[in-house]
Amino acid sequence: MTPFTENVVTIIRSIPEGKVMTYGQIARLAGSPRAARQVVRILHSMSKKHRLPWHRVVNVKGQIALQEDEAYNEQVLSLEAEGVQVGLGGVIDLEKYQWEPPSGHL
């Protein structure tokens, strides 16, 4: 695993229940601000193996990015079970639910 990938996995694991982070935010914290798409690939390929809370990661607009119905619904249900309100179109209020790790936390 590359250092960037290790950082991404660590960051995703650290997202608390009831909070979300964006792909770009994770990329920035992991050391590569322009690598949001790489975060998507890491989530896609490593979520099961590393038991990542993939459902806590959303796009920059606070939207669930998944298009496939089953995965989309699973993400909505998982977030709602943690107390995150998911609005129409899969939109989450980032001002309310976005997690900002404390400096030096990761």
Rank of each mutant, 00 (worst) to 15 (best):
T10I: 08
S14E: 12
I15M: 11
I15R: 04
G18H: 03
K19N: 04
K19H: 10
K19E: 01
V20G: 01
Y23I: 04
G24K: 10
G24N: 13
Q25A: 13
I26M: 11
I26T: 08
I26S: 07
L29Y: 14
L29N: 06
A30S: 08
A30E: 04
R34K: 07
A36W: 12
A36G: 07
R37G: 09
R37N: 12
Q38V: 07
I42D: 04
M46E: 14
M46W: 14
S47N: 09
K48F: 08
K49C: 04
H50I: 05
R51A: 10
L52M: 05
W54G: 00
H55W: 15
R56C: 01
V57L: 05
V58H: 00
V58I: 11
N59E: 07
V60H: 12
V60E: 15
K61N: 08
K61P: 00
K61M: 05
Q63Y: 11
Q63M: 11
I64C: 01
I64W: 00
A65W: 08
L66A: 10
L66F: 13
Q67M: 09
E68I: 11
D69L: 12
A71W: 05
Y72W: 07
E74M: 07
E74A: 13
V76F: 04
L77C: 04
L77N: 12
S78A: 15
S78C: 03
E80N: 00
G83Y: 02
V84W: 01
G87H: 07
G90E: 02
V91R: 09
V91E: 09
V91K: 13
D93L: 04
D93T: 06
L94A: 04
L94W: 01
L94Q: 02
E95M: 11
Q98F: 05
E100Q: 14
E100A: 11
P101K: 01
